[in-house]
Design a binder for these strands. Structure first.
Lengths: 354, 354
DNA sequence: TTGTAGGCGTTATCAT
DNA sequence: ATGATAACGCCTACAA
């Protein structure tokens, strides 16, 4: 492998000159430039980025950490991040944790060792809050969509609790009384931030409307497709289905609907189902899924902006973006016309048929 | 930011000793080690990876390049790559091209500048073959699932042409005569490797069975969900539907089915549809989709193994792994019992109900 | 067991 | 316009 020295020697100039040509910087005589370019071409030389990065003490790369790329929810967020990053000359690299602490720590390490200039985390829920707290103070890190307990951590997402209130409220307004819930595991708020907040919002609405929430109708199965599937399997074994189910993710809603169907029930005929996230599949599925939409692309953009600010040494902040209820085919109203309900806010409610 | 020198000074030792403690190498007196560790702790020091990488001339990181993380097909491949990589101390970073040449080139650059030790490409189709050829010769690069025209490029995937033959053959064996095709754009073999090969295999089977392939039944719309949707829109405008359609991707098959349904047609009642890739959704969708399964996890593992070999200086090779036909609900037989057909090979055909 | 010093490949400062 | 040289932070012979 050739180095800048080899090029310099071959072109009969100093390494400084080669570097100048390489970086298109300063004034280099046209003929000299040509000589250097010839040498570069002849040797098929390309500069070593490690040397460059070390010298500049930056890499112009940022890391996006998520649980797995099979989670469709992240794709539009990443697009937002990438677009903003490109505008500022940064390259985006994605790392997946697959919910392994060990892997998450490896990504933290990459930031501490300066192998990337900063990172956006969408999967931190199994990391100790105090550690996350220290790291986000010391390094350019921002979280997106998965809230950390400590409010000081730079964060971009939606108001999950209010969004869940709006979702539950919508189901109530449709006349449903017995409403079930699919949510994150039997864990504390530290570990399932968004799911915990959604559960909280949901419970409040039930309470405010004087609707009992049966223990049997709460399925702490997680947020994946299989979570929904498992919930359905338990549900059909019990006597009588709930009127409706609020799943804290579209994936879970999909799994629920499909497995209910396999067991001979139809949605929304036998039961209404509502999801969360407005992933591509929620629109495409049959029936298409009523859900809560997050402004994913915009979340990505703002997360990147926050990160750039942090890299530039500025303070982090916390930004909550607006959500929206998307009415589709998986829910039906038991009333002629939805009426106002306790949780009703000014959140936009749109109707979108897939 | 502190450096190894600061730690050395604070601990009252030389940088060499600190380095030794850092790398757990050689013998360091217990007391000295403790002093150093204390200094590290006190300063919250963590070594600079850029300096380390430069010194070692390696990063222990590899890059996986794909078009977009919203393409579900890649997720299991990546898992295979990650698992093998972890076994050898490598960290996997993912980059998305979103089908932009400029972004692809940036990833090539990362390899040339040694910012990663190697790369696996699953999205190269818009890169000039001769360039790809040079790069794969000069750097540790392997391609997966998207064949390059030049056979010398290290590659792991399936025999796309044969797989398409088997798929088409299956449809023929079901008694379908008029069979349509959804495939990649109006492009040459250099640009749509896998889709081109699948089209080729499909055409051969039609020909061998004396079945005419109508121009109107070929939809060069691409391989995304929307590709299938567009195909459906055109299809319903024509007079009479084909008996069956072979889509070169599950995503396209899904789009087709969904849009046909929207237009009042049912699958497989009115038309049989077959996909390709056996993505998670193909099983989950209603109707579940008959498709061609690729051993994705295994492809990922072997791609990583090939890459490790290339990094170690060995020659690349070309590996084709076995595929399998998965029969589900989206196709139906017009005969009592499928009979043997021209393309019939010993490919496994399994029946899996979602 | 520990320290000294050279070098990894680059960029940038300061001369010339 | 160009060259010599000192960093950037780390690791590792080699010496002591």
């Amino acid at each position: 492998m050739y180095t800048i020295k080899d090029v310099a020697k071959r072109a009969g100039v100093s390494v400084a000159t080669v570097s100048r040509v390489l970086n298109g910087t300063e004034t280099v005589r046209e003929q000299t430039r040509r000589q250097v370019e010839e040498a570069i071409e002849a040797l098929q030389y390309s500069p070593n980025g490690l040397g460059r990065n070390l010298r500049r003490l930056e890499t112009k790369k940022i890391l996006v950490v998520l649980s797995t790329i099979s989670n469709q929810f992240h794709s539009r967020i990443v697009r937002g991040i990438e677009d903003r990053a490109a505008e500022h000359g940064y390259t985006v690299l994605i790392g997946t944790t697959r919910d392994r602490l060990e892997t998450l720590l490896r990504y933290f390490e990459m930031i501490q060792t300066r192998e990337v200039d900063g990172a956006i985390f969408m999967s931190t829920h199994f990391c100790k809050p105090e550690e996350a707290d220290f790291l986000t103070q010391a390094y350019p890190i921002v979280c997106a969509c998965e809230p950390m307990p400590d409010g000081r951590i730079p964060y971009v997402g939606i108001d999950d609790e209010q969004a869940a209130r709006d979702a539950a409220g919508y189901l109530v307004s449709c006349g449903h009384k017995r409403i079930g819930l699919i949510c994150g595991g039997k864990l504390t708020r530290d570990t399932y931030g968004s799911s915990y907040l959604r559960e909280k919002g949901f419970r409040k609405v039930m309470e405010e409307n004087g609707l009992p929430l049966l223990e049997a109708d709460i399925f702490r199965e997680g947020l994946t497709y299989n979570s929904g599937k498992r919930a359905a399997q338990q549900m059909v074994r019990q006597e009588g289905l709930p009127d409706a189910v609020f799943a804290c993710s579209d994936a879970a809603a999909l799994g629920l609907i499909r497995e209910l169907y396999t067991n001979g029930y139809t949605v929304p005929g036998d039961i209404s189902v509502m999801g969360f996230d407005n992933t591509a599949m929620s629109e495409v599925f049959y029936p298409s899924v009523t859900t809560v939409s997050q402004p994913q692309y915009e979340i990505g953009c703002q997360a990147m902006e926050l990160l750039l600010a942090r890299i530039a040494g500025k303070e982090g902040e916390r930004r909550l973006l607006p959500h929206e209820i998307i009415c589709r085919e998986s829910t039906r109203s038991k009333k002629a016309k939805p009426e106002s309900f306790a949780a009703c806010t000014n959140v936009p409610i749109s109707t979108s048929e897939a």
